[in-house]
């Protein structure tokens, strides 16, 4: 990889030991610690993590909005510290808020956005017309953005991000707050962008989104990358099955000591009134474990056996359940 950049770069994003330290008086917070990322051309890269994990900070650095404290970043072959302007020309960015002029129409927003990227008036109008057609925005594109529904707003935001035909598109939690129908429409559009050769880097709170949409998933926690790979690879890291047993918290210690001798239980996790056992072969272990607990007179409320999901991966890697995180975000 050379530093002089160019469109032939196969790696769209490369970071080496990327760090961001915030200083607030005497306190220093390491928001991002030694992050090494590689995003290949044409992929949809999902960036996951609980709130405050450092996702947004990382994205802000990659989109030229924030200067890294240390480490190097190469975007589309350009060195971030020296060629921010060239990088801006090659990337699109859609923040959570979108950032349209609310009192202007969607159409006006699109044309202006194109012109700020140096497009001529006629090219900007041409691109805007094309986007309006392909995103089916004809009906509302001449209304003020203020009047748009959540789904319509996301369409115009996405359009704003690709007005100048970027090679790489950053999306910060693009579907948060959308209803399921709008969300699946949005996913389809992202996939169409991928077919056009645009690389997509997105943060999300939805595991099913990451699972079905993203080629590569990266999980971040406390400013550190804790897992990276395809959804399948990540799920395989959790070998075997998960047995979930519902019982009162007071029996946790008793159950744990009963099960200590079993070597096929790799890990035990307890959450409010449920105990999770990560076992090699669930179908064999379950009939043996249950009698042990029943004999000890531990009242069992529910029993479930699960194949590992992305949520399990997330829970194991970060100690949070993504579903709770999602609920928190939606509740804000």
């Amino acid at each position: 990889m050379t530093n002089d950049g160019g469109d032939n770069a196969v790696e769209m994003i490369v970071t080496k030991d990327l760090c961001k330290v915030f200083k607030n008086g005497k306190n220093t917070v390491e928001a991002v610690k030694n992050v090494n990322l590689q995003v290949r051309q044409g992929e949809i890269f999902g960036f996951l993590g609980p709130n405050g994990a450092g996702k947004t900070t990382t994205m802000r650095m990659l989109t030229t909005l924030m200067t890294p404290s240390t480490g190097s970043v190469t975007i589309v072959g350009y060195d971030l510290s020296r060629h921010a302007k060239q990088i801006r020309q090659k990337i699109g960015y859609v923040s959570q808020k979108g950032g349209c002029y609310e009192f202007a129409t969607g159409y006006e927003n699109l044309v202006l956005q194109g012109r700020l990227y140096g497009l001529s008036k006629s090219t900007a109008i041409e691109n805007a017309d094309q986007l309006i057609k392909s995103f089916e925005m004809e009906e509302y594109c001449h209304r003020k953005v203020l009047t748009y529904s959540g789904g319509q707003r996301r369409h115009i935001d996405l359009g704003m991000g690709i007005m100048h035909n970027p090679m790489l598109l950053f999306l910060d939690e693009p579907t948060t707050g959308l209803d399921p129908t709008s969300r699946s429409t949005f996913w389809n559009q992202i996939k169409i962008l991928q077919d056009k050769g645009i690389t997509v880097f997105l943060t999300t709170h939805y595991l099913e989104e990451a699972d079905s949409l993203c080629n590569t998933i990266c999980i971040m926690d406390h400013g550190v990358v804790v897992a990276e790979g395809t959804a399948l690879e990540l799920k395989r890291q959790i070998a075997g099955d998960i047995i979930v047993i519902g019982m009162d918290q007071i029996y946790f210690d008793q159950a744990k000591s009963l099960l200590r001798t079993r070597s096929d239980i790799k890990e035990t996790l307890t959450m409010e009134n449920t105990m999770k056992l990560y076992v090699e072969a669930g179908e064999k272990a379950l009939p043996e474990i249950l009698p042990l607990l029943v004999e000890a007179k531990i009242p069992i409320k529910t029993v479930e056996m699960n194949r590992p999901s992305l949520d399990e991966v997330f829970l194991r890697k970060t100690g949070y359940s993504m579903r709770n995180e999602t609920a928190k975000v939606l509740g804000q």
Binding site: Q89, Y93, Y117
Partner: peptide, 14 residues
């Protein structure tokens, strides 16, 4: 700033 306009403008090449 609150509606994200400034941030969006800052990512353009303007």
């Amino acid at each position: 700033m609150r509606s994200g306009v400034i941030e969006r403008l800052r990512v353009t090449t303007a």
